[in-house]
């Protein structure tokens, strides 16, 4: 089969379809679903419908009015996506906004990630800014706070760790705004730093400095740094002793 490439240099608009490679240098608008192996965008790209690809790289600015289904998505520029998306491996180095749910396996954010919906993946790593208006659920959640305030409505998963990034060579760029605001954190093992939360529930909970938490419910162990405020703590294991008769 001959290879089918869609290359836009300059400014143009065209219809979607099945391609090997799509590349936009300049400004391009594509109407209709696009299926491709590789998509590279260096200028400004607009996809009016769904995009299904193996590898996508955004260096410029791109809007996708449909959803995206990708194996690998790297964003160095700016990308907006309107509908529900599945991205196996998402690498954010610029800014990405999802206006709907996001499903993935590995999400690696070193720029700014904004999601209006739930984020579901295996591994979630963030070192930068993230704003999730919904539930973030992952086996491993690792949030490193750099400069700005991150907001995640709800966090749930296996292990959750939130801490401020340590800059090398003793340089201290840290901002006081490097903070995480959330309502509920539920996981087996939890470590939190500089976090404001209403409820934190889990088996083993460790609270580092700078936290303000209204309620902690823990099962096995708890450790709270003196530089944090925790309004109340409940050990759910204690309650468990008088629970069984009720259950029978």
């Amino acid at each position: 089969m001959s290879s089918k490439n869609l290359i836009i240099n300059g400014s143009s608009s065209t219809n979607g379809g099945d391609f090997d490679k799509v590349s936009i240098r300049g400004e391009g608008t594509i109407y209709g679903d696009v299926k491709a192996d590789v998509v590279n965008i260096y200028g400004q790209g607009t996809f009016r419908d769904n995009v299904s690809i193996k590898k996508m790289k955004v260096m410029g600015q791109t809007d996708i009015y449909g959803g995206i289904n990708a194996d690998l998505l790297k964003v160095y520029g700016q990308l907006d996506i309107s509908k529900m998306s599945k991205v196996k491996h998402l690498k954010v180095r610029g800014e990405v906004k999802f206006f709907n749910h996001l499903y993935g396996e590995r999400i690696d954010n070193k720029g700014s990630l904004k999601v209006n919906g739930n984020v579901t993946c295996d591994q979630f790593l963030s070192k930068g800014e993230c704003k999730i208006d919904g539930l973030l659920s992952a086996e491993e959640i690792n949030v490193k706070l750099l400069f700005s305030t991150s907001r995640i409505t709800e966090i749930g998963g296996g292990t959750v760790s939130v801490n401020r990034h340590n800059f090398p060579y003793g340089i201290n760029f840290r901002s006081k705004r490097a903070h995480l605001v959330t309502t509920v954190v539920e996981a087996d093992d939890i470590y939190l730093e500089y976090t404001t939360a209403k409820v934190v529930r889990g088996n083993n909970i460790k609270i580092g400095p700078g936290c303000d938490i209204e309620l902690i419910e823990y099962r096995d162990s708890i450790h709270v740094s003196p530089a944090s405020t925790v309004h109340s703590e409940i050990n759910t294991n204690v309650k468990k002793i008088d629970l069984p008769p009720k259950a029978n």
């Binding site: 659920s137 086996e139 749930g156 998963g157 296996g158 309502t183 996981a187 087996d188 409820v199 889990g202």
Partner: peptide, 29 residues
């Protein structure tokens, strides 16, 4: 079971999304 397990099962769609019913209580949601 633990929170981790429950979320894992939810992620794998073993527990349907619409069974999760949110209600506000005195401790919040």
């Amino acid at each position: 079971i633990s929170y981790g397990q429950l979320y894992r099962w939810k992620r794998k769609n073993l527990i349907p999304e619409d069974w999760f019913i949110r209600k506000s209580t005195f401790t919040g949601q």
